[in-house]
Computed example of a mutant assay.
Amino acid sequence: MPNTPLNPDALETAARATYEMRNPESWAHSWEELDPEEREEEWVKPARTVATAYLAVAQPVVNSVEELDALPVGSVFMDSDKDWAYQIISNGEPGREGRVIVGAGLEEDFGADELVFPLTVLRRPEVPGA
């Protein structure tokens, strides 16, 4: 999936659905009556955050270090040249920063900044509650 901006109409639809779910018909203000700035700050912005987080782990292609960081430990992915597979084996160790990523058949660790994007996700372990 390309790293493109989220559809603003879809975000507003998600935000409105959340608002209406949390505020039954007896609520004092309908969605249309809300101040546009309040709608954006209180409802659309959180919907954007949730959608971005979901897509970062759901999409089969990772386009940035931030998206890679959202993948769970155990995820396996292939580099853009499709000649090496890597696995995230931990979220970090004492005295090390960040995640530990190993290449299949290699003895060394890789930092996310050493990888060439986009990466193709081959396996993502099941995440309880997801």
Rank of each mutant, 00 (worst) to 15 (best):
Thr52Glu: 15
Ala85Tyr: 08
Pro60Ile: 08
Leu71Glu: 10
Ser80Trp: 02
Glu97Pro: 03
Leu68Asp: 03
Val73Asp: 09
Ile89Lys: 05
Val57Gly: 13
Gly129Glu: 14
Val57Ile: 10
Phe117Ile: 01
Pro72Trp: 04
Asp81Lys: 15
Thr120Glu: 10
Gly98Met: 02
Glu67Thr: 04
Leu55Gly: 15
Val127Cys: 07
Ser90Phe: 02
Pro128Lys: 13
Glu93Cys: 07
Ser90Met: 01
Asp69Ala: 15
Leu106Thr: 07
Ala51Met: 11
Glu93Lys: 13
Pro94Ala: 11
Val50Gln: 14
Phe110Gln: 03
Gln87Asp: 01
Glu108Arg: 11
Ala85Asn: 14
Asp83His: 13
Ile88Asp: 01
Ile89Gln: 06
Gly103Phe: 01
Arg124Pro: 00
Ala104Glu: 14
Ser80His: 06
Thr120Leu: 14
Ile88Lys: 05
Leu71Trp: 02
Gly105Lys: 06
Asp81Asn: 10
Tyr54Asn: 12
Glu126Cys: 04
Val116Ser: 11
Pro125Gln: 09
Pro72Leu: 07
Asp109Lys: 07
Arg124Glu: 01
Asp79Ile: 04
Val121Lys: 12
Asp81Ile: 00
Val57Thr: 15
Pro94Tyr: 07
Glu126Phe: 10
Ala104Pro: 00
Val121Trp: 12
Val76Asn: 04
Gly92Gln: 06
Lys82Gly: 05
Ala51Asp: 05
Gly74Ala: 06
Val73Pro: 04
Val73Met: 05
Pro125Lys: 10
Glu97Lys: 14
Gly95Ile: 09
Glu97Gln: 12
Ala104Met: 13
Pro128Thr: 07
Asp83Gln: 14
Arg124Gln: 09
Ile101Trp: 04
Leu119Thr: 08
Asn63Val: 00
Pro118Gln: 01
Gly92Ser: 07
Ser64Tyr: 02
Ala51Thr: 09
Phe110Cys: 11
Val100Pro: 00
Glu126Tyr: 09
Ala70Glu: 03
Val65Cys: 06
Gly98Cys: 04
Thr120Trp: 03
Gly92Ala: 09
Gln87Glu: 14
Leu119Gly: 08
Phe77Arg: 12
Gly98Arg: 04
Val76Glu: 15
Phe77Cys: 03
Gly74Ser: 05
Gly92Pro: 06
Arg96Glu: 13
Ile101Met: 02
Gly74Asp: 03
Gln59Asp: 09
Pro118Cys: 05
Glu67Tyr: 01
Tyr86Phe: 15
Gly111Thr: 10
Val65Leu: 07
Ala104Gln: 15
Val62Trp: 02
Pro125Tyr: 10
Asn91Arg: 13
Gly129His: 14
Pro125Asn: 07
Ile88Thr: 07
Ala85Gly: 08
Glu114Thr: 11
Gly103Tyr: 02
Asp83Trp: 15
Gly92Thr: 07
Ser75Glu: 02
Val100Ile: 05
Asp81Leu: 12
Leu55Asp: 11
Ala56Gly: 10
Asn63Leu: 00
Ala51Phe: 02
Leu115Tyr: 04
Arg96Asn: 05
Val73Ser: 04
